[in-house]
Write a protein that binds this DNA or RNA. Structure first.
Length: 601
RNA sequence: GGGGGCGUAGCUCAGUUGGUUAGAGUGACGGCCUGUCACGCCGUAGGUCGCGGGUUCGAGCCCCGUCGCUCCCGCCA
């Protein structure tokens, strides 16, 4: 007989009765009745109840066992009597009658119980991650992650993509996030950087003629964490394709994303390809966000003109750059205090407040109520009702400010209304592409033109006219769109992507517009620019976040729930004790000297 | 870098207006119990109330500082 097991803890069934079996696993729970001892033995595959009576020679040793000890139990599989079957357990029709006990490992008193599904503080969970990972929910999430990655690989390979590995030790890139640096031993004073993404490598893979690339790629960024963003490192499905248009990239990704989500969504419906394509400007207007949650039916409208009419005398909104109207269907049923709380919330977000109008029916016609309704003529009110598709029983909130701030506040109010009024659908996955991002934006602080998103994107603009652009023509430049797109699911940005700028002349001009001299651009991106001078195919790609895909499928709000060994918000690994000090010899070899920051007085 | 919340037994938490010896559940340890599957019953041990200072006759509770965790803003091409 195998020294550890002939079956795992999840596979014994009625058909195995009368077989002799050996199981190994952790003591999930022990119930000692004095004259009868039950041990629930658990492994990766499941749970099996094992039982022993006092007249058995195994009883003494078995009754020593405590939670999370590792045991090997041997004995005959027996059927449970009908009144003792456990229907909640796949193995619940049988039990193992213990005849032999081997204690493989003992466990000290647990800092984190494996049994039960209570929530425990992050610090404990991270410090004892190996215990937390034994628990059912987290164990299941990690298994799901593995299956999702496997499914992605299968689908990508099936679609003709090849997976290639790109370097982990590479050069610091001057743009983007803060790099993680690795000091060079052989080259004093020089550093490698961990890749923020394999961006330049995957483009070089296209220049090298490999046509369709993907990688489940680790990415490193030394930026602060958030609940949905681990500090330091994360994984993305990095994709690049040659000789493609934007639509070709969408057509390649949609079946993969739809397929993976469908495979693991259970009964939750998933958007069918083709996913909606929403221009950036339209998304900012209708949803107040560049990552709209389409499960929320509320659509924002622009009401600036209504409030500037002569028959509208609400002074607080007069002369505001923008007034956005956020419908709140059915909100008339809410008490006054609900509207007050919405206002308070808006003030907490740094806004002056949210005006609102409630539509009611009076003598067969629709009238407006609420603090600001009296400043609007009947005609203006009905115009608002049309704009916001409101009917009696509905309300409308208003966000008035500069265009950017009003849009964002309206977007936040939309999310709040959606969740507070239970309008946002649950248990479904709504995808969309956001397209036509602006290539550039105006940096008001530094009074200059910045790249709006990815500087390597191809401008969606006539090439000759682009090359001839006058840098003084700010309005034209700020109006240029890029072949740049995001894929969004349920209000979560899964990735951005782009058709890349593969032409050195256009790239130099694009950077010149953003304030980089030709020499500077040549120097900073010499690797890629050089490659583009030897025959670069038109190419483009995208890179959906693996962690976020699994978060959505596992329906958890925190990225640590789908990561095997995550760091905490301070970018520390509490279990391994990283980061840690290193010994002086290591520092000498690396030509480093530590300068501690001065303590605050 | 900034803002909010939290910090009490191994673990999860309660602790009223500042007032006697800081409690419960769970886990640990010991005892009883032959059908449980959150087994049940009895008992025992277990505390630097994050840390430092202050106010007070008296501080887990109030004040100041500090540390840690977490959520958010900044940041994340």
């Amino acid at each position: 007989m195998h020294p550890y097991r002939t079956k795992n803890c999840g596979e014994l069934r009625r058909s195995n009765v009368r077989e002799r079996a050996r199981l190994s696993g952790w003591v999930h729970r022990a119930r000692d009745h004095g004259g009868l001892l039950f041990i629930d033995l658990r492994d990766h595959y499941g749970l099996t109840q094992c039982v022993v009576e006092p007249d058995s020679p195994a009883f003494a040793l078995a009754s020593e066992a405590r939670s999370e000890w590792v045991l090997t139990l041997t004995g005959p599989v027996v059927a449970r009597s009908t009144d003792t079957v456990n229907p909640d357990l796949p193995t619940g029709e049988v039990e193992l009658r213990i005849e032999e006990v081997a204690i493989q490992s003992r466990a000290e008193e647990l800092p984190l119980p494996v049994f039960g599904d209570l929530d425990y503080p992050e610090e404990t969970r991270l410090r004892y991650r190996f215990l937390d990972l034994r628990r059912e929910r987290l164990h299941h999430n990690i298994v799901l992650r593995s299956q999702v990655v496997q499914s992605i690989r299968r689908r990508m390979t099936g679609a003709g993509f090849m997976e290639f590995q790109t370097p982990i030790l590479t050069a610091s890139s001057p743009e983007g996030a803060r790099d993680f640096l690795v000091p060079s031993r052989l080259h004093p004073g020089k550093f490698y950087a961990l890749p923020q993404a394999p961006q330049q490598f995957k483009q070089l893979i296209m220049v090298a003629g490999f046509d369709r690339y993907f990688q489940i790629a680790p990415c490193f960024r030394d930026e602060d964490g958030r609940a949905d963003r681990s500090p330091g490192e994360f994984y993305q499905l990095d994709v690049e394709m040659s000789f493609v248009t934007q639509d070709d990239v969408f057509a390649a990704m949609e079946p993969v994303l739809h397929g993976v989500f469908e495979e693991f969504a259970g009964n939750r419906p998933v958007s069918r390809p083709p996913f909606p394509r929403i221009p950036y400007a339209e998304s900012m207007l209708l949803y107040g966000s560049d990552k709209p949650d389409l499960r929320n039916p509320v659509m924002i409208a622009d009401a600036t003109q209504v409030f500037n009419r002569e028959d509208v005398t609400f002074k607080a909104f007069k002369g505001k750059e923008t007034v956005r109207a956020i419908p709140a269907p059915g909100a008339a049923a809410q008490p006054r205090s609900w509207f007050d709380r919405m206002n308070e919330w808006a003030r907490g977000e740094g806004a002056a407040g949210l005006g609102y109008i409630v539509f009611e029916e009076e003598n067969g016609r629709t009238v407006g109520k609420g603090p600001i309704a009296k400043f609007l003529s009947d005609d203006a009110l009905s115009r608002l009702a049309v704009l916001t598709a409101s009917k009696p029983g509905d309300a409308v909130f208003f966000a008035a400010d500069k265009i950017g701030r009003a849009a964002v506040l309206a977007g936040q109010a939309r999310l709040k209304i959606g969740s507070e009024l239970s309008l946002t659908r649950k248990d479904c996955f709504e995808f969309c592409w956001i397209v036509d991002f602006p290539m550039y934006e105006w940096n008001e602080d530094e009074k200059r033109i910045d790249f709006s998103h990815n500087p390597f994107s191809m401008p969606n603009f006539d090439r000759d006219k682009f090359l001839a652009l006058d840098l003084q023509d700010r309005d034209t430049i700020l109006g240029i769109k890029a072949f740049q797109y995001d894929i969004v699911c349920n209000g979560v940005e899964l990735s951005s992507g782009a058709i890349r700028n593969h032409r050195p002349d256009v790239m130099l001009k694009a950077f010149e517009i953003a304030g980089y001299s030709r020499d500077e651009t040549e120097q900073r991106f010499s690797g890629m620019l050089n490659a583009f001078r030897y025959g670069a195919p038109p190419h483009g790609g995208t890179a959906p976040g693996i962690d976020r895909i699994v978060m959505l499928l596992a329906d958890v709000p925190n990225i640590r729930e789908v990561t095997m060994f995550p760091m905490n918000q301070q970018a520390q690994d509490l279990m391994m004790g990283a980061p840690s000090e290193v010994n002086p010899r290591q520092l000498r070899e690396l030509h480093l000297r530590i300068v501690q920051p001065e303590k605050k007085s």
